[in-house]
Simulated scan of single mutants.
Amino acid sequence: MPSATEHTHHLRIRNTQLEMKSSSGNSSGEDVDGKLRLAQTQLEELQAQREELERLKTETEQLNTRKRELIGSQVEMSERLASAMTLIDRELFEMKQEIDDLEQCRSCFAGHLSKIEKLNPESWTREQLPDRLDRALAIVDHAEDEYSQAAEHFSRTRSASIFQGVRRAKSSSNSEFRQQLFRGFAFNLPIIALGGLALIAYLCK
């Protein structure tokens, strides 16, 4: 009896140990599964972080490229605008200077034109003719000289075409005026001759 009791007790101890080993095995398996799940989760997080870093890197490179393009365009456009403004300022200065010169030229021409238009050789008497012819020719020559100087001055400007077109008209007008002067002189020549003969005859008496 005592030996049977001891044997039974011994079997009970072994059963308990088996149960403990089985329970310990299940716990180890659960730990491995948990670690695997944790490792998988960490791997997924690392992969997500890696993708986010790649996205940020690509985005940064694109931004840097656009920034370099902006700086290049900024420098180029600044140079073009500054150069254009310099040329515009120069052009405006030259235009204003030319306008001032044209205004002075017009005022001068207006004075000459007024003097020339007042000349009327047909109304001059024999006594007035020599003196007035000299003065009239001097007025016309003076106007012609200043006109030639103005045409030379503006020959290198955008106003050169004005004088090229007017030069022919002016030359024609001057020629016509000279012709009128000589015609007036020729018209009065017989009267002058008769007057001269009468004066000689009177003196001979």
Rank of each mutant, 00 (worst) to 15 (best):
I192D: 09
K96Y: 10
M20Q: 11
L43E: 12
V140Y: 00
P130K: 01
R167Q: 08
K115S: 00
D33A: 07
L63T: 11
S107E: 12
H153D: 11
S24A: 08
S148V: 06
A84N: 05
P130E: 01
K67W: 13
R80F: 06
F182V: 12
E91T: 15
K205W: 11
R168V: 12
D31L: 12
M77N: 11
R168W: 11
Q128D: 04
T16N: 13
C108Q: 10
A39G: 09
M77Q: 10
P190L: 01
K115E: 00
W124Y: 03
R168L: 13
R168P: 06
D145A: 06
R156W: 08
D134Q: 13
S27Q: 08
T86K: 12
T41C: 11
R90C: 14
D141S: 04
E69V: 14
I99L: 11
M20K: 12
K67A: 14
Q104Y: 07
W124I: 01
T16H: 10
E146P: 01
K205C: 10
E176A: 06
S22C: 01
E45W: 12
R156H: 09
L102T: 05
L102Q: 03
E176L: 05
T125P: 00
R158P: 05
S78N: 03
P121I: 00
K21V: 03
S161T: 05
S159E: 02
A186R: 15
C108N: 08
R50C: 05
K170F: 05
G184R: 04
R135C: 05
S114Y: 07
Q104C: 06
I139F: 01
P130R: 00
T60I: 08
S3E: 15
A4E: 08
K115V: 02
N188G: 12
E117P: 02
L197Q: 13
C204E: 14
N174C: 10
F185P: 03
Q104I: 06
S107R: 09
E54T: 04
D101K: 05
Q47E: 07
H142P: 04
R132D: 00
I191F: 15
Q179N: 13
S173W: 03
E79N: 08
L56I: 12
A136V: 02
G29P: 04
T8A: 12
T86Q: 13
R126M: 14
Q40E: 10
L81Q: 03
F185C: 07
R37D: 02
E61F: 07
T86W: 09
A110S: 14
S161E: 04
I192K: 12
S173Y: 04
I139V: 01
